[in-house]
């Protein structure tokens, strides 16, 4: 099956979901709209609370989808996702350590620490894996993330700091604290990184060939591999800074794109961006409205829905292939 990705299709998909996310939430906005004096309140809820959240979710989701596509192409394995190779755990460990060492630290610094931690763990992994094929990098990432997870568990048990309980919610990927300044910084970073990653995807062809033929064609696969990893890290870091650690988007978006569109990496970039954005917006919408007033972090919704959906996707793919 393949759907042509016309501008009408993209807009026809994005706009209704964007509207859905703006108009729905823990409270029903439509009745407010009917009453004259409540209209201003409704506008306030939409512009102050929902707009930044929804846009940041879309940007973060698009970036993570792209990071997933890059990692999957790089490793030649369709199960790779930035969240399972230790980016998330590295970010989490840095934040937990930061809070333990400097309890007085202002909360605005946490994203910075998270980014530093995520980057450190990926760079360490990259150096460890020199001279091995990319699938080894993914497997070592799985090992690294379980080691970091064990250390986080240990720190949580050893410390009696109440603050950490709150941090754990943030670390499960939440857009609750998104405000206008988060929106601005995410917009700035994404406007650089998303087009750049799209361009990078146009150069992924040589990675799909076997090493010998790509060398004969004169492609510098090493440089492209490095760039891919760097780009995936940068996109992951922007996501961590904006929303904590979100998993599964990087896995689901490329799979959806491959199912619905012709599977050339050059042409997958755009659908991956769109599906990543859609999935994250929807997960955030479900998290804030499903059990309202209880708010569940988007990252948890993604994990809970992501695994079953992913299994269904795999099965569907299998049926199409025969």
């Amino acid at each position: 099956m393949s759907i042509r990705l016309t501008p009408t299709f993209c807009l026809g998909l994005l706009l209704p979901i964007l509207a859905l996310c703006m108009l729905n939430g823990s409270i029903d906005t439509l009745p407010l709209f009917m009453e004259q004096q409540q209209r201003q309140l409704m506008m306030q809820i939409i512009t102050e609370l929902r707009l930044p959240r929804v846009i940041v979710a879309a940007l973060v989701g698009a970036g993570l989808g792209m990071a997933g596509l890059l990692l999957q192409t790089l490793s030649g394995n369709r199960l790779a996702d930035p969240s399972i190779i230790g980016v998330n755990q590295g970010a989490a460990l840095a934040v937990v350590l930061g809070i333990l060492i400097m309890p007085e630290m202002p909360p605005q610094w946490l994203p910075l620490l998270g980014v530093a931690g995520g980057l450190t763990s990926v760079i360490a992994l990259w150096r460890l894996c020199r001279g091995t094929p990319p699938i080894a990098l993914i497997l070592m990432g799985v090992g690294l993330s379980s080691l970091l997870g064990a250390l986080i568990g240990c720190l949580l048990i050893l410390s009696e700091t109440q603050q950490l309980a709150m941090v754990m919610t943030w670390l499960s990927g939440s857009f609750a604290s998104t405000n206008h300044s988060t929106l601005v910084s995410t917009l700035v970073w994404s406007s650089v990184l998303l087009p750049a990653s799209w361009l990078l995807c146009q150069r992924l062809g040589p990675l799909l060939l076997d090493p010998l033929s790509s060398r004969m064609l004169g492609a510098r696969t090493g440089a492209i591999e490095g760039l891919c990893l760097l780009m995936a890290c940068a996109l992951g870091a922007v996501a961590v800074a904006a929303s904590g650690t979100l998993g599964f988007v990087g896995l689901l978006a490329p799979h959806l794109a491959r199912l619905l569109h012709p599977p050339h990496p050059e042409r997958l970039a755009l659908p991956v961006l769109i599906y990543g954005a859609l999935l994250t917006m929807l997960a955030d919408l479900l998290g804030r409205s499903l059990f309202a007033p209880v708010q569940l972090p988007a990252g948890l919704m993604l994990a809970m829905l992501g695994v079953p959906v992913f299994i269904l996707l795999l099965l569907w793919q299998q049926r199409i292939r025969g």
Binding site: I27, I45, P297
Partner: peptide, 18 residues
């Protein structure tokens, strides 16, 4: 009125309460 759980208060409901 309940605002949900401590970790993530429901800000939309909070705002409608003015």
């Amino acid at each position: 009125i309940s605002l949900g759980v401590v970790q993530e208060p429901d800000l939309e409901r909070l705002m409608t309460l003015k």
